[in-house]
Design a protein around this nucleic acid. Structure first.
Lengths: 346, 346
DNA sequence: ATGAAAGCGCTAACAG
DNA sequence: CTGTTAGCGCTTTCAT
């Protein structure tokens, strides 16, 4: 009796144990043909007993589907870390991929533009993934063209740079949250309201600032300050410290994300201001950290997990893995009033 | 002339264009045989022109190597988010995998124990990855046995539960940071020092608490409080608020990570205490957020990126993808004194 | 209803 | 030095 290598159990081992052909095993496991219950049971038992599962490589080679989705984060570790919205997004993505037996192949590359491009290119040419999820839409984003050339299905989470070059998932009423934030502040009597934006190359940066400005304009107001920061909390901190030291300082500040708001809060405390007594603060995203601050952060909540779920489903639909149909609703950005906003001072 | 499908360029296309056999292409691309420069050039040109790269699936099927490493995070999205140390770790891992052309396949599953097990099992049986990186060593961790049964190479980042059941990467002098933290506090005159620990099922929880207690004992002191919290900042916040309301409250608190310290800081402020005047606080990990707080957080820095790098290299060595040899040094945990610690009150 | 056989794209033996 | 060939593990016609 021939001694097979004990490693690597294959479909043939299962077939042998069940006393059927490999073709039968394949069909039964994939629910294809129609077999007598007895046969099906024998095969199922053999599968379990041998702890067998089809080799992903063989399946991929055969059918050209890898059952993996790619994601490339073009950020330095540090910045990635200080903007934890990624984690929420990824969790949402995974929650749809996992039950459908798809994996998420993650690449964190530096900020050099060609590093990201190389990563996408390899994902495509090596056929490691069936599709990719794009985040952090940028001005003049070169990835759409690249991915199209690579014929790699993709979804963008967020606002595309120009026309819809690639399927996109985003919340309806995208701008309402920011508009509400401004209303809230104005309603509290604030007149000197500033905005601290993130990196200029992000598409949403310009957009949110525009919404902010327009919302103020509806009250005959204009921004007291338009500060350009980045995602590094340090920058925001020193920027805000500087502004608070001036005579025409704002009584309220809206910031592009919660980590920046956290930095602003510290800056305020450092310069002896109290929040919200001397300065109101509104963040963006509603990251868990906002609850942990004192005062608790008023913020514009984004349904990051929902966006992740919708994005995953969207690629899956493009791949024909998921029946076409409307994507699940993503909850629109929504103002969550907590403790960091209050009446305008004196 | 036969019209090939325009899609999916394969090695045969390259071979045809270069006028050689597929074997020649394979060898030249992989630097195996020895060929005249002219041939090599023709092949290289064809590769570039066709934008070809070997199909990962075919290579994997052939060689049984997928060039991917797996990681399973058994956490709920929210908890994952509030403990961003993952991001730093992953960044470290990627920084070694990427240049060696390996991917990181990430699975975020819930906290149900069997979810993680299923994930590992599938990673192994479907042969989606060549090895895995384990984090968050737990008491009675069932993963070692599982992975061994699955014959899936693995490394653990952190302290194993018992004997070394699986290769492990960690810093030398693991306990020095915590010991220094206690020294620092005692040196500042603190006598009532408490510790707020994370989930009991983590191996490091008991260990760090023990080191804390021993370090105090060297000064004839014992912990004023030993609080058992979890990673949800909320829990820590209310725990700390409660303790601060008592008469025998601590004058200093050491916390199991920086997010918990952040929560403690807010709790202190909420109950009208000033840090560090009324209460000194020491965190753990040195996450970027610590810089952004006011006061800036004194913390025990962990070289998370270094751990990630070492872990990646360690699996790669097990796989024979990387020459055996000593792993890079991981910087030992180190006390970073900033502003959240000060002289004991009164 | 079930099995034999071809072939997905690649590489390692083996010929020439 | 270079090409032919076999086969990795699986699925899918096509026969039986």
């Amino acid at each position: 009796m021939a001694q097979r290598r004990t490693d690597r159990v294959t479909i043939s081992d299962v077939a042998a144990l069940a006393g059927v052909s490999t073709a039968a095993v394949s069909k039964i496991v994939n629910g294809k043909g129609s077999f007598p219950q007895a046969t099906r049971d024998r095969v199922q038992r053999a599968v379990v007993q041998l702890n067998w599962a089809p080799s992903a490589a063989a399946v991929a080679l055969r059918g050209a589907r890898t059952r993996a989705i790619g994601m490339v984060a073009g950020r330095t570790p540090d910045v990635l870390n200080s903007d934890p919205h990624f984690a929420l997004l990824i969790a949402g993505i995974e929650s749809e991929l996992a039950p459908r037996d798809h994996g998420l192949l993650l690449h964190i590359v530096g900020e050099q533009p060609d590093a990201a491009e190389r990563a996408y290119r390899r994902l495509a040419t090596e056929r490691r993934v069936d599709g990719v999820i794009l985040t952090e839409s940028r001005v003049g984003d070169p990835r759409f063209a690249l991915l199209r050339g690579l014929r790699l299905p993709a979804v963008l989470v967020g606002t595309p740079w120009q026309s819809d070059p690639v399927p996109t998932v985003r919340a309806a009423e995208q701008d309402q949250g920011m508009a509400d934030a401004v209303e809230h502040l104005v309603g509290l009597g604030h007149r000197r309201i500033g905005y601290v934006s993130g990196p200029e190359d992000r598409v949403h940066t310009g957009r949110r600032r525009a919404v902010f400005t327009e919302a103020l304009a509806r009250h005959g107001l204009s921004p007291s300050h338009l500060l350009a920061s980045d995602f590094a909390g340090q920058t925001t901190g020193s920027l805000v410290e500087k502004v608070l030291a001036t005579a025409d300082r704002p009584s309220a500040l809206v910031l592009a994300n919660d980590m920046m708001a956290l930095a602003a809060l510290a800056a305020a405390q450092r310069t002896g201001r109290q929040v919200p007594r001397d300065l109101s603060l509104i963040g963006h995203d509603d990251l868990p950290v906002g609850h942990l601050l004192h005062p608790r952060l008023t913020t514009v909540r984004q349904d990051l997990a929902g966006l992740g779920r919708a994005a995953a489903l969207s690629v899956l639909q493009q791949l024909g893995e998921e029946p076409a149909g409307p994507l699940p609703e993503v909850t629109p950005p929504q103002l969550v009033v907590r403790e960091s906003t209050g009446p305008a001072p004196g």
